[in-house]
């Protein structure tokens, strides 16, 4: 077979359709590296170098001062609430969308995607209109002395809104591809619906779920626009990390601003590393191709 092929040389001037000349290849690779460096690596490097520009002690002082600590605590709190809620919602939504047929399903899928297409500023303003002083629910909230906007609940709500699609969007395509055969098998073997869901459906999508959680978490911690609208910017109370970074920067406090920024960037890098690890280790599961099939 092999010899047979070699014996027939390709016509003059022929080259494999997928290979380019050395020059073209170098130019394309060079351009890619250039943009990667200019858009990603250099800015990231600058953030860290600015944060440490006056030494480690100044950096440590700037990220451990009360305002920065309060911002870190609030950011973690918001993520600790928003991410689990979105996991539950995303699982339920993807399960409903992928395993069942019902009327209005495409509308349902569009609604899940809404936060992707709505600007975060508008998301924030919607909550201001709803829960703010001239708003629909204001009299009721006042009567019960509940403050949503300009307080932590508003920040959590705004963050949940912008992160709603992350888990569901990871799961839906995978679940759709997997189909309902496993569930049917489990049900026909006598498992209850609840048991089937926990023992078959969820484990089948576990790595996509973890992946969605990572993305959701990164966005929840980094959200600026929607949170800025509803925060009220009360120092040590409603300032999240992105907000305090902007405030410190505008106060010419570059080291502190980039100190907090580098913490946030570090978080993003950890997310990225975990993501890469997942893709490398469980790429097949993520893509929906299962080795056993």
């Amino acid at each position: 077979m092999m010899a047979h092929r070699v014996s027939r040389p390709p016509p003059r001037g022929w080259r494999p359709p997928t290979s380019e000349g050395a020059l073209t290849r170098r130019v394309l690779i060079g351009m890619t590296l250039f943009f990667l460096a200019g858009l990603l690596l250099l800015p990231l490097f600058v953030v860290f170098s600015e944060a440490f520009s006056r030494g480690f002690d100044v950096f440590r002082a700037s990220v451990t001062e009360p305002e920065a600590l309060a911002a870190i605590r609030l950011t973690l709190l918001v993520a600790a609430i928003a991410v689990p809620v979105n996991v539950v919602f995303g699982l339920a939504a993807a399960w409903a969308a992928a395993k069942f047929e019902f009327r209005g399903k495409s509308l349902f899928l569009t609604l899940i995607d809404l936060p992707f297409s709505v600007s975060p500023v508008i998301a924030g303003l919607m909550y201001v209109l709803l829960y703010g002083a001239p708003g629909l629910l204001w009299p009721t909230l006042q009567a019960h002395d509940i403050q949503i906007i300009w307080a932590v609940p508003g920040i959590v709500l705004a963050t949940m809104f912008v992160t709603v699609p992350f888990v569901a969007r990871e799961l839906i395509p995978l679940m759709q591809e997997q189909g309902t055969a496993d569930e049917e098998a489990a049900l026909s073997l006598g498992a209850s619906g609840w048991k089937t869901f926990w023992s078959v459906t969820v484990p089948n999508v576990r790595w996509a779920l973890v992946y969605g959680v990572l993305l959701c978490n990164a966005r929840a911690m980094g959200e600026f626009g929607a949170v800025a609208v509803v925060s009220g910017r009360i120092r040590e109370e409603t300032m999240t990390m992105p907000l305090i970074i902007e405030a410190l920067y505008n106060e010419f406090n570059g080291v502190a601003a980039f100190g907090v920024a580098s913490l946030l960037a570090l978080l993003a890098l950890v997310t990225l590393a975990l993501r890469t690890l997942l893709e490398w280790r469980y790429g097949a599961d993520l893509a929906g191709r299962r080795a056993t099939r």
């Binding site: 600790a80 609430i81 991410v83 689990p84 996991v87 539950v88 496993d182 489990a186 073997l189 498992a191 048991k195 926990w198 023992s199 078959v200 969820v202 484990p203 576990r206 779920l209």
Partner: peptide
């Protein structure tokens, strides 16, 4: 699936939610 791998992940998920 039903008896070994699945509960492990389900347990992990429950633990993670509880931690959060």
């Amino acid at each position: 699936l039903l008896w070994s791998a699945a509960p492990a992940f389900t347990r992990a998920l429950t633990v993670a939610l509880a931690v959060a």
